[in-house]
């Protein structure tokens, strides 16, 4: 029986993880943390005597509240032995300001790791990471394994830098004999209704995007339900290390954009590059990468054999367009 702590449980993936773990008989107590008020979906979890679910609102990027939390009596009472760190990935995380050169996503990761290492009762740390940390070679689809090179160049896209920092922080502890670290690298995560997370070009609100003409990278995708199942598999496994995860489908960016109500309009690459460089000079680098980043040109699929072998994870959900009750079509995920 594992007692788990889930960070950013108020964000879509964290919420999905908590819901799945609540129904898992091998999970005892669940302590959920979030930056916001508890989602209403958690109301039913508070029933029971004694309750096996607790929620706390906490700023994970600040040392004092984190330290207070890990030393609180409530934390001790729930006997947490596994931490699941789900970094911010929703709309709220887009406008994160930088403190020095460290984003709050990386700052949070550092504090979570620090406290997980310092708390004797914690034996396992499962981290949700992004597969966009890999350096992409040119090409419509590159098959990447866990040993593929990370994008450690001096100038990665600003949206990706925090994910790379997080990945490296946790990767550094993979050999730790006291704390088992499982780092799950997820590709683009999609959810029923057309929600999409982690893809640097599609994250954020619905609406049209631009992409370079003549490029239509293949995007590995995974449903949010499969992502939560992977976290569950990692909790119950004894395996440590980095694991690539992916769903059954790989979809060109143009199709994925249409499915998620973010149509990608093709614009000649030279024009995009010029516009990106000009706007980037005026407003900063993020625009350049948003308009002409490598993930809008080159795609990847993931070798998931390690996760299948060591975590026993197999994707179960299909992703596609389904007809809704009102006759329209929308992205849906359903068990195969």
């Amino acid at each position: 029986m594992r007692n788990v702590l889930v960070t950013h449980s108020d964000e879509p993936l964290g919420r999905r993880v908590v819901k799945l773990l609540w129904h898992d008989e091998r999970i005892g107590n669940i302590f959920a943390l979030g930056a916001d008020a508890a989602p209403r979906a958690f109301d039913t979890f508070r029933a029971g005597d004694p309750p096996r679910f607790a929620y706390a609102r906490i700023d994970l990027a600040r040392h004092r509240p984190m330290s207070d939390f890990f030393h609180s009596s409530q934390f001790r009472e729930l006997e947490i032995d596994t931490v699941i760190h789900v970094p911010q990935h929703g709309v709220a995380s887009e406008g994160l300001p930088l403190a020095g050169n460290v984003s709050s996503r990386a700052g949070e990761a550092r504090l979570v790791l620090e406290h997980a290492l310092a708390t004797r009762s914690i034996r396992s740390l499962v981290v949700v990471g992004s597969a966009f940390v890999y350096r992409l070679a040119p090409g419509n689809a590159n098959h990447l394994s866990e040993s593929s090179e990370l994008d450690l160049g001096p100038d990665p896209a600003p949206g990706l830098r925090p994910w790379i920092d997080c990945d490296m922080l946790f990767h550094g502890e993979i050999g730790n004999p006291r704390l088992r670290v499982a780092l799950l690298r997820l590709p683009t995560v999609v959810a029923s209704g057309g929600y999409v997370y982690l893809h640097p070009g599609l994250a954020g609100r619905a609406g049209p995007r631009l992409r370079p003409l003549g490029f239509d990278p293949l995007c590995a995708v995974i449903s949010d339900k499969d992502a939560a199942r992977a976290v569950q598999a990692a909790i119950h496994s004894d395996a440590a290390g980095a694991f690539n995860l992916s769903g059954r489908e790989a979809i060109p960016l143009s199709v994925l954009g249409r499915w998620t109500r973010r149509p990608c309009l093709p614009v000649p690459g030279l024009l995009l590059r010029a516009a990106g460089a000009g706007l980037g000079r005026l407003l900063g680098n993020p625009l350049r990468d948003l308009l002409d980043g490598p993930h809008l040109r080159y795609g990847f699929t993931l070798d998931t054999s390690r996760a299948e072998r060591e975590l026993g994870f197999q994707p179960q959900y299909r992703i596609g367009l389904a007809r809704t009750g009102d006759g329209g079509l929308r992205l849906e995920t359903a068990r195969a």
Partner: peptide, 13 residues
């Protein structure tokens, strides 16, 4: 609480 995107349409038939 900010929604991530606009409210979804009704589910599948």
């Amino acid at each position: 609480k900010k929604p991530d995107i606009e409210p979804p349409s009704p589910g599948p038939a």
